[in-house]
Amino acid sequence: MKVGFIGTGSMGSLLIDAFIRSGALLPEQIRVSNRTPEKAQQLSKRHPGLTVCSCNKETASESDLFFICVKPLEFKSVISEIRDRLSEHQIAVSITSPVQLIHLESALPCKVAKIIPSITNITGGGASLCMYGSRIKEEDRQLIQSLLSYISRPVEILESHTRITSDFSSCGPAFLSLFLEKWIDAAVEMTGIDRGTLNALAGEMLVGTGKLLTEEGFSPEQLQERVAVPGGITAQALILLNSHLNGLFYQLIETTHDKYEEDLAKLDAAFGFSVNRPRY
C-alpha cells in the first residue's frame, strides 16, 4: 500500500514519524509533498526511501490512501488541485477538524474519512478520533483503524462531537501542560527546588494517572476520593482548586467552539454550503 501526505508541517510530519517508528509503514511506502519543499526534503533525509513528490497532484494520484494535513482555509485550493487526478477507489483522509465530511464528499470523487490525531501519538499513546464518509466500506474502515492502531487507540465518534472530543484528545496535552507549567513555576519560586526534578515527577504522575483512568477503571471522581483523605492536605487543596476553577471550563469550551465555528463558517462559504448546525 502506498500512503501519501499532503502537508508535512507539525502534524503531518508527526504522523509520518510515528507510522515509521511504530513499523506501521516503511519509508518506501510513503509519498509526500509540501508547500515549502525544504520541509519535505528534511523528512526524506530523516527517513531514507521516502519519496518527495513534485506537487500535491503527484502525491494524491500515486497513493492508495493519502492524508491531507493542511490548515482549514488551504483545503479548498488543495482539493481543487488534486480532484481531477483521483479515482473512486482511493481514500482521502483529512486531519483538520473544521473540514466536514460533506465538504470533502461534495468536491472529491474518492472515498473520504476524517481523523483527529494527537501529539501523544508519537509515543504510540493517546487516541485518534475517527469519522467516515458515506462511501467508506467496512474494509476501508478496518484498514484505517488498523493503521492508526499502531500509534494510538482509534475511537470512532460522531462528527458533531469533533470539537469537544478534540478538546480532550488533541488540545488536552497543551491544557494540562499549562497547568503543570504554572504549578512548577510557583514551586520553584517558593521553594527553590530544581525544575528538572519537578518536570520528571510531573511526567511520571501523568503517565500513572492515565493508566489508572484507562487500565484500572477509575473515574476522575473516584481517583480524587481515593487520594484525598477527609480533612487531609490533598482534600484541602482540592477545595481551593474547585473554588478557583468553578466556571473556567465552561469558558474554555466556549472559546474552542467559537474558533471552530469561525473556521467552519469560512469553509462552508468556500465550498458553497449554507448550513445551520447546533452549537454543541
Rank of each mutant, 00 (worst) to 15 (best):
I16M: 06
C171F: 10
T214C: 06
S118F: 11
I193D: 07
G23V: 11
M11L: 10
T209P: 10
G247T: 12
N246H: 08
F175E: 01
F67G: 02
K71F: 04
D263M: 14
G124R: 09
A269L: 15
E204T: 03
P48Q: 13
A237H: 12
P37Y: 07
I95L: 13
F249V: 05
V227P: 08
S152A: 13
I16H: 04
G7D: 04
L248E: 09
I115Q: 02
A235H: 15
S146E: 13
L267T: 11
I233Q: 06
Q145G: 10
R226C: 01
F218W: 11
Q236H: 12
L147W: 04
L245R: 09
N34W: 02
P230H: 12
A237S: 10
V227I: 13
S169N: 12
I102P: 06
A270G: 00
M11C: 08
D194F: 05
A127K: 12
I233L: 15
L129S: 04
F67W: 03
T59R: 03
E139S: 13
N56Y: 03
T120M: 06
E261L: 09
G124I: 01
G272S: 14
G231A: 10
I30P: 02
Y260F: 15
M190S: 14
V78N: 09
K266Y: 03
A235S: 15
S118M: 09
L108Q: 10
V155R: 05
R277A: 04
L143E: 13
E261T: 00
I116N: 03
G232M: 13
F75W: 10
E262I: 00
C130E: 03
S77H: 12
N56Q: 08
V93R: 03
K266F: 00
L26K: 15
G4P: 03
E159W: 06
T191M: 08
R277W: 04
L101P: 03
I82Q: 03
N276S: 14
I20F: 03
R85F: 11
G12N: 06
G232I: 14
S128Q: 06
T197D: 07
K182E: 07
V93S: 03
T96P: 09
Q236Y: 08
I122P: 00
E139Y: 03
I253V: 05
I157K: 13
Q42G: 08
E181M: 10
D64Y: 01
R163V: 00
V188R: 13
A200T: 09
P117Y: 03
P109W: 14
Y150V: 10
T165H: 10
L26C: 05
L65S: 05
T162D: 00
F273N: 11
V155A: 06
T197R: 14
D194K: 10
F175H: 08
L264Y: 12
G208A: 11
C110Y: 05
V229M: 14
V32C: 02
S166D: 10
I151G: 10
L129Y: 01
